[in-house]
Computed example of a mutant assay.
Amino acid sequence: MFVTPMARAEVILAMGCHDVRVAVQAARLWHEGWAPLVVVSGGRGKVTSGWAETEARVFARAVREHGVPADALLLEETATNTGENITATRRLLEGREIRRGILVAKPYMTRRSLATARRRWPDVEWLASAPEVGYEAHVDGPDGRRFLELMVGDLRRMAVYAERGFQVPVPVPEEAWAAHEELARLGYGRYLTG
């Protein structure tokens, strides 16, 4: 898991996904006083397309259940991917002075979320946080295979999306890339991007 040291910010952005622990982590950061505002961003993505509600609505409920009041919470319900989480939130917060923001994402998504935010909203200093969930909790759970498929796809996006200009380049250690290629070869490539 990659996280940055925390510092006071203007906004905490919970990156929508299927893992509600991201919203709970955003609420925890709000309670610790890192920022006065939480934005939950997410429409429906590849994993949540069948949900009855948007990711933002599910996350908002979790954030409120964890004690964040409605006046400290904004919903962005259109984003279907990481880049849209950033650009749609940027539009939502237009007119507010945002110098620093805290991204909250799944543990394996923090690097790519940061790289995307630094490309899509470069005048903000971005920090990253994630729920403290170990690898074993993902792999040993009922969605272990999907977790590996998502993680393999996400690492591929680190390279492909930098080449396409969607995010700033981030170096990937050779060992990580070799593991990615082996997992893809073993059939965990369901979410690979060309």
Results as ranks from 00 to 15, higher is better:
residue 48 T to R: 09
residue 151 M to L: 13
residue 179 A to C: 08
residue 11 V to H: 08
residue 110 T to W: 13
residue 34 W to H: 07
residue 45 G to L: 09
residue 20 V to I: 10
residue 145 R to A: 07
residue 58 V to K: 01
residue 114 L to E: 04
residue 111 R to V: 12
residue 160 V to C: 00
residue 12 I to Y: 10
residue 82 T to A: 12
residue 193 T to G: 00
residue 110 T to E: 13
residue 134 G to L: 15
residue 129 S to V: 13
residue 136 E to P: 11
residue 185 R to A: 13
residue 191 Y to I: 02
residue 76 E to F: 03
residue 149 E to R: 06
residue 153 G to S: 11
residue 121 W to A: 09
residue 30 W to V: 08
residue 107 P to R: 09
residue 38 V to G: 03
residue 142 P to G: 15
residue 81 N to V: 05
residue 100 R to M: 06
residue 33 G to W: 12
residue 190 R to K: 14
residue 123 D to N: 13
residue 193 T to S: 07
residue 27 A to K: 11
residue 82 T to G: 07
residue 166 F to M: 11
residue 53 E to K: 10
residue 163 E to T: 06
residue 122 P to D: 05
residue 92 L to A: 09
residue 140 D to E: 15
residue 162 A to M: 12
residue 67 G to S: 02
residue 190 R to T: 14
residue 78 T to G: 13
residue 132 E to Y: 14
residue 50 G to V: 04
residue 9 A to T: 08
residue 72 A to N: 05
residue 75 L to A: 03
residue 99 R to L: 12
residue 26 A to G: 08
residue 176 A to S: 10
residue 107 P to D: 15
residue 133 V to P: 07
residue 17 C to L: 13
residue 179 A to K: 08
residue 84 E to H: 05
residue 149 E to Y: 01
residue 12 I to D: 13
residue 29 L to R: 05
residue 139 V to H: 12
residue 73 L to Q: 00
residue 9 A to V: 11
residue 73 L to V: 04
residue 24 V to Y: 15
residue 36 P to H: 05
residue 147 F to A: 08
residue 39 V to C: 04
residue 52 A to E: 11
residue 184 A to D: 06
residue 172 V to M: 10
residue 120 R to I: 02
residue 52 A to I: 00
residue 77 E to F: 00
residue 129 S to N: 14
residue 57 R to T: 12
